[in-house]
């Protein structure tokens, strides 16, 4: 397949990597095949901005050159790098804070009846979400003797997972959503960064998992967080992912979505929980 540099996809003339309609088609196909996300929902400036660091790192000038490298197939990692750069990895500690208390409330009954619970963070980005759960449950273990859960945290982005495993955050990241007392309790200063204590990381198992291409991790989960991940998926793909999430949920288990997300009109497999506002359970459960 040859890629010609014609028909710029940017109408305005601001200095940004040139991008032909062909290149745009290749990049959007790559993203959709790998992640289910539709590039049409991005603005083209976002494409330029998102890929600029990758271009720089590879000594390339234009998106067309990047696409040529991708298609030439010699460097097997370049597709991953492009996908990493294009997916939105925005996150913070204790994002939508009240949801965390609801999860704790929902799981404490299960823990009393059955012992250790299991949580799956699907789309965990750079680790703030599973670490927030780990902190909250470790504190509850200290105060009430509750056994903390096992947390499985997955993401499609190897780059995000590497950062999550390192659990090292800069001054801006550490201050987003994290109360200072928790920072003092659970993080150690290292140069200008803050690193999570090993006790938290022992509660979390990180692994790569593509939600649109693979089944869920083994076993059933008492809660699944899939927050701000499914936003850009087509309705059909979204329904497929909801079916996978449903199959991974233990009886009575909870599904937690992002603040602006819902299952209503997207799948019949889940319905709003009657007791925990904003969370979802299997329909008829």
């Amino acid at each position: 397949m040859s890629v010609r540099t014609t028909a710029p996809c940017r109408p305005d003339a601001s200095p940004a990597p040139a991008c032909s309609a062909n290149a745009l088609a290749v990049l959007s196909t790559l993203l959709e095949v790998r992640t289910g996300q539709q590039l049409a929902s991005y603005r083209s400036w976002r494409l330029d901005t998102a890929l600029k660091p990758l271009l720089r790192a590879r000594g390339l000038e234009t998106l067309d050159q990047l696409v040529v490298q991708l298609l030439d197939g010699q460097d097997k990692t370049i597709g991953d790098r492009i996908v990493d750069a294009l997916v939105n990895g925005e996150t913070s500690f204790f994002r939508d804070q009240p949801v965390f208390d609801l999860i704790a409330e929902g799981l404490s009954g299960v823990e009393r009846r059955r012992g250790r619970t299991r949580i799956w963070c699907a789309g965990c980005a750079t680790g703030q979400e599973p670490l927030s759960l780990a902190m909250m449950f470790a504190e509850r273990a200290e105060s009430s003797g509750e056994t903390p859960p096992d947390i499985v945290a997955t993401d499609i982005s190897e780059a995000s997972l590497a950062r999550a495993r390192a659990a090292r955050y800069n001054q801006f990241e550490i201050q987003r959503g994290l109360p200072i007392r928790r920072m003092m309790r659970w993080f150690t200063a290292d140069e200008a960064d803050w690193v999570a204590q090993p006790q938290l990381l022992r509660m979390i198992q990180y692994r790569r998992l593509n939600l649109v291409a693979e089944g869920p991790p083994a076993g059933r989960f008492d809660a699944i967080l899939c927050r701000n991940v499914l936003l850009y998926l087509s309705p059909a793909t979204k329904a497929q992912v909801f079916a996978r999430l449903a199959s991974a949920l233990a009886p009575g288990g909870l599904l937690v979505l992002g603040a602006g997300e819902t299952v209503i009109g997207q799948t019949g497999l889940f319905e709003p929980s009657k007791t925990l506002r904003g969370l979802y359970v299997r329909t008829g459960a």
């Binding site: 913070s92 001054q171 801006f172 201050q175 987003r176 959503g177 200072i180």
Partner: peptide, 13 residues
């Protein structure tokens, strides 16, 4: 406690 330099997100958070 806010560690300077701060940005809008930090302060709001």
């Amino acid at each position: 406690y806010v560690m300077k330099p701060f940005d809008r997100d930090t302060l709001e958070s």
